[in-house]
Amino acid sequence: MKKLFLVAFLLGFAPIFAQETDIEDVELTPDNSWLKLGLTAGVPIGDANDASSFAFGADLRGQYLFNPNIAIGLASGYTHYFGKDNIDDFGVIPAAGFFRYYFTPDGLFLGVDLGYGFLANIDNNDGGLYVNPQIGYHNRDWNFYAYYQNTFAENELDIQNVGVGVTYNIRFN
Rank of each mutant, 00 (worst) to 15 (best):
F5Q: 11
F5L: 15
L6A: 13
A8L: 14
F9M: 05
G12T: 11
G12P: 04
P15T: 00
I16D: 00
Q19S: 14
E20W: 01
E20F: 05
T21R: 14
E24Q: 09
E24I: 08
E24N: 15
D25W: 05
V26Q: 10
E27H: 15
L28S: 09
L28I: 09
N32V: 01
S33V: 07
S33A: 15
S33E: 10
W34V: 06
L35D: 02
L35I: 12
L39Y: 10
T40C: 03
T40F: 04
A41Q: 10
G42F: 09
V43R: 10
N49V: 14
D50S: 13
A51V: 15
S52P: 13
S53C: 09
A55L: 09
F56T: 03
D59M: 15
D59R: 11
R61Y: 04
Q63M: 12
L65P: 05
F66W: 12
F66S: 01
P68I: 10
N69K: 10
I70K: 03
A71V: 01
G77R: 05
H80V: 10
Y81A: 07
Y81I: 08
F82A: 12
D89E: 10
V92T: 14
A96L: 06
F98T: 01
F98S: 02
Y101N: 01
Y102K: 14
D106M: 13
G107E: 09
G107S: 00
L110K: 02
L114S: 01
G115K: 00
Y116E: 00
F118C: 07
F118T: 12
F118H: 15
F118Q: 10
L119S: 11
A120P: 03
A120N: 12
N121H: 12
N121W: 06
I122H: 13
D123F: 06
N124V: 06
N125Q: 13
L129W: 03
V131P: 10
N132I: 05
Q134Y: 07
I135E: 05
G136I: 00
H138C: 04
N139P: 09
N139A: 05
R140L: 12
D141Q: 10
W142Q: 14
W142K: 07
W142H: 14
F144W: 14
Y145A: 06
Y145P: 02
Y147P: 00
Y148G: 08
N150Y: 02
T151S: 10
A153W: 06
E154W: 05
N155I: 04
E156M: 08
E156W: 04
N161W: 09
G163I: 08
V164Q: 08
G165N: 12
F172P: 07
